[in-house]
């Protein structure tokens, strides 16, 4: 285990006597940090920017892309913020730690990279208007809102430069952006832009490839989204060929307690319906050995109320993000009652 990953343990699990509980220490108590309140109205563009009083926050973009020859690619660009203490300060004394993850996936290859920085000195951060999120030489730059984005990242063996244009409005997840994560009431603020048209270039060791496709941006912040008895999550963002979209997640419980699931149905016309807890069902049907552990790479996803009975399968089962806190994140294809594409994130598989 490298020192850096140890370090992340302590950053993300800071001040936690029960360190080791929950993925990346997300399931810890929220001493001193603000907690999400039901009924709080999100306001933009301010809420595109960071919320340093909350412990964790992320700007999370995934995209399913295709080259002219039909080759499929997946791209991830993520900036995490994790606070050692609430609040922001100028210079080195800033308690904010930033972490960037980038991924590029094809059917046969998967690349990942990671960047770390601390706040306060300008090495990494987010400004709301005009929008920019950056860490080192990676950035995601936008206009006033999140309508247009230019993003870039590079790591060992890969890079990408993409332009994204939103079609449609922001989607507030849960109850107007208040997204409950456990039966105990743990929650986060959560909104998304599920409908980006993306164009650009991905560069692999074999050379640059022009690509285009669809993207999905998630914005979430909280101080303790997981309950202490939850061990990880499986998160799906699916875009059906009908134009409907489904975001659903399962928070897996430890010790056989019932899992917690939730999600949002976004119709082709843009109508947003939060799913009631337990309505979204996901069952692994095939495992693969990934990075020395068993990870489900084929799922049966059901949403009986919407007649959704689909199989979700990884484009590349080895989409392992080999970063300090490793997890699985990659593009998926959907078949069954609906067809389409999407992204799957699975954390907490040890």
């Amino acid at each position: 285990m490298s020192v850096r990953s140890l370090l992340l343990c302590c950053i993300l699990g800071c001040a936690a006597p029960a360190f080791g509980q929950g993925f990346a220490g997300l399931g810890t108590t929220a001493d001193g940090f603000a907690t999400p309140q039901l009924g709080q109205v999100l306001s933009f563009p301010q809420d595109h920017g960071p919320h340093p009083d909350f412990r964790i926050e992320w700007w999370y973009l995934t995209a399913n892309l295709e080259a002219a020859d039909g080759t499929e690619y997946g791209v991830q660009w993520t900036l995490f913020r994790s606070a050692l203490a609430p609040g922001e300060a100028e210079g080195w004394s800033s308690p904010q730690i930033w972490m960037g993850h980038a991924g590029l996936t094809s059917e046969t290859q998967h690349f990942s990279a990671e960047r770390l920085a601390r706040g306060g000195i300008g090495q990494a951060g987010v400004t709301a208007a005009p929008f920019e999120a950056w860490i080192d030489d990676w950035s995601m730059r936008g206009d006033r809102g999140l309508q247009q984005l230019a993003l870039s990242a590079q790591g060992d063996g890969f890079s990408y430069q993409l332009v994204a244009k939103a079609e449609g409005d922001l989607v507030l997840q849960g109850q107007n952006g208040y997204s409950v994560k456990s039966p105990d009431g743990q929650a986060s603020y959560y909104y998304s832009q599920p409908e980006y048209r993306i164009k650009g270039t991905v560069t692999l060791p074999s050379g640059p490839v022009a690509v285009s496709g669809d993207g999905w941006l998630d914005r979430e912040w909280s101080s303790q989204p997981l309950s202490e008895d939850q061990s990880g999550w499986d998160w799906f963002s699916l875009r059906f060929d009908t134009g409907d979209k489904l975001m659903g997640f399962v928070l897996r419980s430890k010790d056989g307690v019932e899992d917690f699931s939730s999600g949002t149905w976004i119709s082709a016309t843009g109508e947003v319906t939060p799913l009631r807890s337990g309505a979204f069902l996901a069952q692994p049907i095939a495992q693969a050995e990934v990075a020395g552990r068993e990870v489900p790479i084929k799922w049966e996803v059901r949403l009986p109320g919407r007649d959704v009975f689909v199989v979700v399968e990884a484009l590349n089962p080895q989409s392992w993000m080999d970063v300090a806190f490793a997890y699985w994140e990659g593009p998926v294809t959907v078949s069954g009652s609906h067809t389409g594409k999407g992204y799957l994130e699975m954390t907490g598989y040890e």
Partner: peptide, 23 residues
């Protein structure tokens, strides 16, 4: 972190790095 050889178990090191970083 110079001089810090991580031991095989993570438990011993975490408080150290935490102590370094935590104000």
């Amino acid at each position: 972190v110079p001089g810090q050889t991580p031991p095989s178990s993570a438990g011993g090191e975490t408080p150290l790095l935490l102590a370094l970083l935590q104000p």
